[in-house]
């Protein structure tokens, strides 16, 4: 028996909304999906008219739908923003090269400018080269740290005022759980913020913060959007896998769990006496960092010095190496000066 749409539109329902379990027709689903994102944007004042907004585009489902929906809403509700697609080429053969093709097609389809920044030009290392050095384990740490900075640098190159990323509700909820499991209290505090980095650095925002991953897939599927769906060829983060599996199980028990976790994350407050890392800038590259030298610089240094394992383990060890090398150079320098002075004195005498 055909089910009619619960939204009183007399059309036939085609799907069950993962978030609310109501049965909707396609038109009502699109409407609900887009309106929800619009409301999130408006309520949180994500965009100002005249701003240039870089969409972090990987070619995957989230960013493809994000680019599509933002273009649509920008026209429908006159946000007055300029959208730019921004991609990072990590240099992973068999994964990123293919997904970048998708981004390039999207550029044609949506008529948006596209900028690609690559690890190779920024750091002199492709992920393939990094993996050759450090093996299949832990390479995600490098990729993640580098990508964060690469996006910022790319956005500065295209003179964007903001970066939007396709992080969806599932991602945010998963991050809340991960930070609890890892005891990362500083990140736990900021991971549910819809907009980060408002002071100083380029602000980043997540218009999909309340959007379920399943609904994004559904939207892309019914809208027949062109996206790339392959797992990265390098090993996925195993520990994160546990959190993800747990989250999926929670969702199957109670679909609202994902939003509930985000709500919990927003409402947790941290004790005042707990020491928080202070955000400063990296003494080497000037990028924001909670340490004296940012993680990207530490990692790059360790790669260039041929000791990549150092950067993954204890941070202080790697930093000691970096600082030591600097200090050592200074000592040698002083020694030289001293030596010359001494010589001069000898001459003088």
């Amino acid at each position: 028996m055909p089910v009619t749409c619960t939204n009183d539109c007399n059309r036939r329902a085609k799907l069950k909304r993962p978030k609310t379990a109501e049965k909707l027709c396609l038109e009502c689903f699109y409407q609900a999906f887009e309106d929800e994102i619009h409301r999130t944007i408006v309520n949180n004042k994500l965009f100002q008219p005249g701003e240039s907004v870089a969409v972090g585009a990987s070619g995957g489902k989230d960013s493809t739908v994000l680019a599509y929906v933002l273009k649509l809403l920008n026209e429908r509700h006159n946000y007055g923003i300029n959208l730019v697609l921004l991609s990072v080429d990590e240099g992973i053969t068999g994964y990123r090269d293919d997904s970048l093709e998708t981004v390039k097609r999207n550029q044609q389809q949506y008529q948006l400018p596209l900028k690609i920044v690559s690890y190779e030009e920024l750091y002199g290392w492709t992920m393939d080269a990094i993996v050759q050095k450090i093996g299949m384990k832990n390479n995600c740490t490098f990729c993640g740290v580098f990508r964060r900075q690469a996006l910022d640098r790319g956005a500065m190159l295209v003179k964007a005022d903001k970066i939007v990323t396709g992080h969806n509700a599932d991602d945010v909820a998963e991050t809340v759980l991960m930070n609890v499991l890892r005891g990362d209290i500083a990140r736990l505090r900021r991971c549910t913020a819809i907009m980060t980095g408002t002071e100083g650095a380029l602000p980043r925002c997540k218009p999909f913060k309340y959007t379920y991953e399943k609904e994004i897939v559904m939207y892309a599927y019914f809208k027949k959007l062109d996206y790339f769906s392959t797992e990265c060829v390098y090993s996925p983060n195993a520990y994160r896998g546990y959190a993800r599996a747990y989250l999926k199980d929670l969702e199957s028990i109670r679909p609202s769990s994902i939003v509930d976790i985000i709500h919990s994350g927003e409402r947790m407050s941290i004790k005042k006496e707990v020491k928080m890392p202070e955000q400063g800038t990296c003494s080497k590259c000037g990028y924001i960092s909670s340490q004296s030298i940012c993680k990207a610089c530490v990692m790059l240094e360790s790669l260039n010095r041929g000791l990549p394992k150092l950067a993954i383990g204890k941070t202080h060890k790697a930093k000691v190496v970096t600082i030591c090398s600097n200090a050592f150079q200074r000592i040698i320098y002083r020694f030289k000066i001293f030596h010359e002075l001494e010589r001069d004195e000898i001459k003088f005498v």
Binding site: V176, V259, D260, I261, S264, G265, R267, M268
Partner: peptide
């Protein structure tokens, strides 16, 4: 608690 929206 977190999963049931009781973060606060």
């Amino acid at each position: 608690d977190i999963a049931q929206g009781r973060g606060s």
